[in-house]
Simulated scan of single mutants.
Amino acid sequence: MSLRRVFAVACAVFVVGEVVLRLSWIAGGRWGYTACDRTDLGDHPVGGCGADQVAAVPFAAGWGALGLFVVLAVLIAYPDRWKGAVTWIAAVILLVLAFPLHLFFEIPAGVAGHPTDWRDIGGRVALLAGGIAFAGLANAVGPRGPAPTEFRPVPGWARHWAHVAVAVPIVGWAVPHGLWVLGVPFGISEQKLGSADGDLSNATGVAIAVVPPLAGLLVLGLVQRWGQHFPRWVPGWGGRRVPRLLAVLPAGTVAITLVTYSVLSFGVFAGKVLDGEQSWAQVREGWATVATLLVFLGWGVAVGVTTAGYVMATRRSVNGQQARTG
Rank of each mutant, 00 (worst) to 15 (best):
V57M: 04
I132T: 13
V166E: 08
D117P: 02
A162K: 03
P143A: 14
T39G: 15
G17K: 01
G320V: 07
A112M: 12
G156L: 02
A27M: 03
T306R: 04
S24D: 09
V15D: 02
L41C: 03
S24V: 03
G136P: 00
G110Y: 11
A209I: 00
G178M: 12
S2K: 07
R284Y: 15
P231K: 09
G267K: 09
A10D: 10
R240Y: 12
V96P: 01
A61W: 11
M1N: 13
E285V: 07
G130R: 04
A112I: 09
W173M: 09
V86Q: 01
V171W: 07
A10V: 06
R30P: 07
G236P: 00
Q224S: 13
G194M: 07
G309D: 05
G122A: 10
V164F: 08
L294K: 08
G216C: 09
T204S: 13
T87G: 03
P153D: 05
L294V: 14
I208Q: 06
A61H: 10
G84K: 05
A60G: 09
A281V: 13
A288K: 10
N139M: 12
R244N: 12
R240C: 10
V295R: 01
R38E: 15
G271I: 07
S2I: 08
A281N: 14
V259L: 09
I256L: 15
A255H: 06
T149R: 05
A51Q: 08
L214H: 00
V111P: 00
L101Q: 14
V206G: 03
G187H: 03
I26D: 01
W299R: 10
F186K: 01
V318P: 05
V311H: 09
A12I: 12
W173S: 05
G145D: 02
A162V: 04
R241C: 12
R4Y: 06
A126V: 14
G136M: 05
Q224D: 14
W157S: 13
F186C: 06
A167E: 08
V234H: 09
D120E: 10
L214V: 05
G113N: 07
Q321A: 15
L222E: 04
L179Y: 01
A129M: 05
A255F: 07
G142L: 03
L179Q: 03
Y261H: 12
E18R: 13
